[in-house]
Design a protein around this nucleic acid. Structure first.
Length: 495
DNA sequence: CGCTTTTGACCTGCGC
DNA sequence: GCGCAGGTCAAAAGCG
């Protein structure tokens, strides 16, 4: 910026000198026929001067705007940390709260402006001349349960008791034990071991793909294939072959409802460096898995969860998704509690959901009721094209879900015309928020997603000049229309 | 020849 | 204990 200013002032000085020289020259010659020619030259020089001034002004404005955005991001990053405490304190005040976590990513100028009135963090954005914005927000909303919810909650020890970490830990442990249905002592010992835990936690990615498998940047070797019940399409089992001892495996199966949808389930932790594209996928899935594991276990206990990224590497390129028009759709996170997930908590990133202005939640019975949608994720795609994903996580018998969409109106809940809540959530907002805010890999993934969007100027529909906001706020709301509590991880779509 | 894929057998967990 | 389903193993086949 300073350099630009210097160059501009230098140019101005040169112009003034040249003007002076020319005028002197005219005087000396005294030739009228040359006067017009020289005047035109001077005029042209003045115009050039004006253009340079305009350029300088523009550059200065852009510089100020960028400064504001950096400030915004830093501010919201701080608020993200504060929100954990806010959520915690709110939970202490509200008995059996109904929690709602928002996580938005996408161009969302209108969304942001609508919520500006209630979100302090957005105040600084007022008056900014921004045509397009990328918004990444992390909001938490809490709801007081109605009587039905309370009954439901009381029947399930894993719900509601989130007023303190210790209580949460205790109830989560109770629920976990219940879900495991009196597992053996050996299993309990395994729970302490991170690797075992990570092995049990899975991240599933639903995406449209014509090829047999998604090209996620890793090398895989097929080691088995099975026809699973209820799906005529065989399920293929792959093992990571990048590292000789890499324990990561994935299952690939076509969706029975829509054969164009490929469901890829990852399990395990890479113990070797990954390519950038593989790291992108690994980080996103790892982050999702970390969320799941953070929400399902004691906060005092830490384990890596299903980390698909190498243990030893940083992942600055995580979530390196290619974006198409589908990026306008919000990623959706689901917590299915199918019985099949009881021993394998699974998060599903659904990259097939269409763009939606409101959100829906899904029960496991609705798990397959996805409407056809275009994600642009094809056999040629290296990475899913958009944060157009839905994330399911599943625990035991507690049917729950985190998600958004429009597909299932009967589950629609929209306190803000876009929010919905779903019954029987084993994950509390506190857990999710904790997980998100405390998990560096998730932050890394989101940040990388943003940088990808911003940096990927050539991607379809993406304006390289768009700006990014991190929005992390907390608010409260009542949701009396729902009879069960739930958590919603909401990645709002761009407007 | 080496690697990958295929495929039937085997193992394990869970529900009845 | 039995049957079922999911998951894994490993030998055989295929491929470049």
């Amino acid at each position: 910026m300073e350099e630009t200013k210097k160059r501009s002032s230098t140019a101005e000085g040169i112009l003034v000198k040249e003007e002076y020289k020319v005028e002197s020259y005219i005087e000396a010659l005294g030739k009228e026929d040359q006067l017009e020619h020289v005047k035109a030259k001077v005029y042209a020089l003045r115009e050039e001067n004006e253009r340079l001034k305009t350029l300088l002004d523009h550059a200065t404005k852009e510089y100020q705007t960028l400064k504001m955005h950096i400030f915004d991001i830093v501010q919201q990053d701080e608020q993200a940390k504060k929100s954990v405490h806010t959520i915690s304190s709110t939970l202490h005040q509200v008995e059996e709260p109904h929690d709602l976590v928002f996580l938005s990513l996408g161009r969302s100028s209108s969304v942001i402006r609508k919520e500006d009135a209630s979100h302090n963090s957005n105040k600084s954005r007022e008056g900014l001349d921004v045509k397009e914005r990328l918004a990444l927000s992390l909001d938490s909303k809490f709801e007081v349960l109605n009587s039905c919810q309370t009954t439901e909650t009381m029947s399930n020890p894993s719900l509601g008791n989130i007023s303190s970490d210790s209580k949460e830990d205790e109830t989560t442990e109770q629920w976990t034990r219940s879900a495991r249905n009196l597992k053996t002592k050996k299993d309990e010992e395994d729970d302490v071991q991170p690797q075992t835990q990570s092995k049990k936690t899975r991240v599933s990615v639903r995406a449209r793909c014509d090829a047999a498998t998604m090209n996620d940047g890793c090398q895989w070797r097929k080691y088995g294939q099975k026809i699973s019940k209820g799906n005529p399409c065989p399920r293929a089992y792959y093992r990571c072959t990048v590292g000789p001892t890499c324990p990561v495996r994935k299952q690939v199966q076509r969706c029975v409802e829509d054969m164009s949808i490929l469901i890829t389930t990852y399990e395990g932790t890479h113990n070797h460096p990954l390519s950038m594209s593989a790291t992108a996928m690994a980080s996103s899935t790892s982050a999702a898995a970390s969320m799941l594991t953070s929400g399902s276990t004691s906060s005092s206990r830490s384990f890596p969860g299903t980390s698909l990224i190498p243990n030893t590497s940083n992942n600055p390129h995580s979530l390196n998704f290619n974006l198409s028009d589908n990026y306008r759709s919000r990623p959706q996170l689901y917590v299915p509690n199918n019985s099949s997930f009881s021993s394998h908590p699974t998060i599903t990133l659904d990259l097939t959901a269409p763009s939606a202005s409101s959100c829906s939640l899904y029960t496991p019975s609705q798990f397959n009721k996805y409407p056809p949608a275009n994600t642009g994720f094809s056999s040629n795609s290296t990475i899913p094209t958009a944060w157009n994903s839905q994330l399911y996580t599943g625990y035991g018998n507690n049917k729950s879900l985190i998600g958004t969409g429009t597909q299932n109106q009967e589950y629609t809940y929209a306190p803000n015309s876009r929010n919905q809540i779903h019954p029987q959530q084993p994950l509390s907002a506190e857990n999710i928020t904790k997980a998100i805010t405390s998990d560096p890999s998730f932050r890394t993934a989101l940040e990388a997603a943003i940088s990808t969007i911003v940096g990927g100027g050539g991607v379809d529909g993406i304006n390289p000049g768009k700006q990014v906001y991190l929005n992390n706020t907390t608010s409260s709301s009542l949701k009396p229309d729902h009879d069960q509590q739930g958590s919603l991880l909401f990645l709002s779509p761009p407007s």
